Computed example of a mutant assay.
Amino acid sequence: MGNNSRKKYSADFKAKVALEALKEQMTLPELEKKFGVSQYMISRWKSELSKNAYQTFGATGNEESHQKEVDNLHRKIGELEMMLDFAKRASQKLG
């Protein structure tokens, strides 16, 4: 049976290598020797970092869904406050 011995790299390590690649101060073969990772993987991590860097500073798509959730929670708070006020008034009338 085949032995699947793929290396697993931490997110920190991937980010470090990808940032080095983005700096373009070293060639891919130099980075491969320095970090012991294939040029293909370095290119892939660099591409992923470039595509997803916006998430570091907040994604605009998530802000819209976050705002909807906040609005729903405010609406629910308002409903609960009305129910509480009604219960308090009813409790006072009953003694």
Rank of each mutant, 00 (worst) to 15 (best):
E63M: 05
S5N: 13
Y54R: 06
M83F: 02
A18E: 02
L80R: 04
S5T: 11
R6E: 10
S10E: 12
E20G: 08
R89N: 11
A21T: 03
V17M: 13
L31E: 10
N52P: 07
G2P: 13
K76H: 03
N72Y: 12
H66Y: 13
S38I: 10
L73G: 00
Y54V: 01
K68P: 00
E81N: 09
S65F: 08
K33Y: 00
G95P: 03
S43F: 10
L49I: 01
R75D: 02
K8V: 15
E24Q: 14
F86V: 01
E24M: 11
M26P: 07
E81G: 09
T60I: 11
L84Q: 03
K88Q: 07
E20D: 15
L73W: 08
G78I: 06
R75I: 07
T27I: 10
V37F: 08
F13G: 13
Y54N: 01
M83V: 03
T60F: 10
F13P: 13
H66K: 14
M82V: 04
E79I: 01
S38V: 05
K8Q: 15
H74D: 02
G61V: 04
L19W: 07
H74P: 05
A15R: 13
G61M: 08
N62S: 13
L28M: 06
R75T: 02
L73Q: 06
V70W: 02
V37H: 08
V37S: 13
E64A: 14
K93M: 01
D85I: 03
F13Y: 15
K93Y: 08
E32R: 09
K33R: 15
Q25T: 14
K51N: 10
I77D: 01
N3R: 15
A59I: 05
E20M: 10
K34W: 10
K8L: 14
Y9K: 03
A90S: 14
E63P: 06
L22I: 12
A87M: 12
F86T: 07
G36Q: 11
K51V: 11
Q92S: 10
